[in-house]
Simulated assay, not measured.
Amino acid sequence: MEKILITGGKTGMVGRNIAKHPKSKDYQILTPSKEELNLLDKKQIMDYLQFHKPDIVIHCAGLVGGIAANIANPVGFLVQNAYMGLNLISASRENGVTKLLNMASSCMYPKNAPNPLKEEVILTGALEPTNEGYALAKILSTRLCEYISKSCSLLYKTAIPCNLYGKYDKFDDKAHMIPAVIAKLHHAKVNGLKAIDIWGDGEARREFMYAQDLADFAYFALEHLEIMPQNLNVGIGKDFSIKEYYQEIAKVVGFDGEFVYDLSKPVGMQQKLIDDTRLKVFGWEAKTDLTEGISKTYQYYLTLKEQ
């Protein structure tokens, strides 16, 4: 069995979904906690890699959050994510890890890039200010993987997922949109609220993929890493407006109140839809549609409420 180190596999949404995927049984999985592996400490990473000797690294760990969290803590989102990625990727190379799958983010794309977003337009324009720090950190890790792949003949590839949601997500007020809205509308239903606010006019468009589908992609990518493009968008190739997400979540949750639009709030990029042309050629596609994904995520949220 090949041994896979999954960063963020203990508490992160993406990492936990990968670690618990049915195909994980075909590998020996390492999911160290932050205490066991501090990605901000390169020496600790070196010691961990030398002791455990993983064959593959999947880098999912990071400081993550929605617009509010990014605006509130730009320094943390830049510094922590940059150090985590650079430390881990460079230490992996130095320890002879031959395969590495780096999980980046579609926020790396320029704010004014034409949609759908093609992989080659990264670093061709200014970034969206509301998550610039996080985006810069992800760009650094992506570029480092490119340099290593070219100079060292190692398979260090980057997946660029669209927005994600699903099991093991966070549901607080600094969460990403779908889990935050699930918690918001559930609270409104339980407490009999008749109106809920939406940031902006609700017309901005986003692409969201169920996190378990990304886990499925991760194992598919490992099985075909040699032919995987260096940087590859991973998504569903379809987007919806913020208003449509609220409406779909309201149906699943059972909230029948009104929506009030707060035009004073930031909404980020007007549209963020990845181009999935290369993904289709690679031979993979997501399986979970929006209603099914929201329903599964809501059921997971309810189990958390019962605990």
Score class of each variant (00 low, 15 high):
30 L>F: 14
30 L>R: 06
31 T>F: 06
32 P>N: 14
32 P>K: 00
34 K>F: 07
35 E>Q: 12
36 E>Y: 07
37 L>M: 11
37 L>T: 08
38 N>S: 10
38 N>E: 06
39 L>M: 12
40 L>S: 15
41 D>R: 05
41 D>I: 11
41 D>A: 11
43 K>T: 11
43 K>V: 13
45 I>E: 03
46 M>K: 13
46 M>S: 09
47 D>W: 14
48 Y>F: 15
48 Y>P: 07
48 Y>D: 05
49 L>Q: 10
49 L>D: 00
49 L>P: 09
51 F>E: 07
51 F>W: 09
51 F>L: 12
54 P>S: 04
54 P>L: 05
57 V>M: 02
58 I>Y: 03
58 I>G: 04
59 H>K: 05
59 H>V: 04
60 C>K: 02
61 A>F: 01
63 L>E: 09
64 V>S: 10
64 V>Q: 09
64 V>A: 08
66 G>F: 00
66 G>V: 00
66 G>C: 04
67 I>Q: 03
67 I>D: 03
67 I>Y: 02
68 A>C: 07
68 A>P: 06
68 A>S: 12
68 A>Q: 06
70 N>M: 03
71 I>M: 09
72 A>M: 02
72 A>G: 10
72 A>H: 01
72 A>E: 05
73 N>H: 04
74 P>D: 05
74 P>W: 06
74 P>C: 06
75 V>S: 08
75 V>F: 14
76 G>E: 07
76 G>L: 08
76 G>V: 12
77 F>Y: 12
78 L>H: 04
79 V>H: 09
80 Q>V: 14
80 Q>A: 06
80 Q>H: 13
80 Q>N: 08
81 N>T: 02
82 A>N: 11
82 A>H: 13
83 Y>I: 12
83 Y>R: 14
84 M>F: 04
84 M>P: 02
87 N>R: 05
87 N>G: 06
88 L>T: 07
89 I>V: 03
92 S>Y: 00
93 R>L: 14
94 E>W: 05
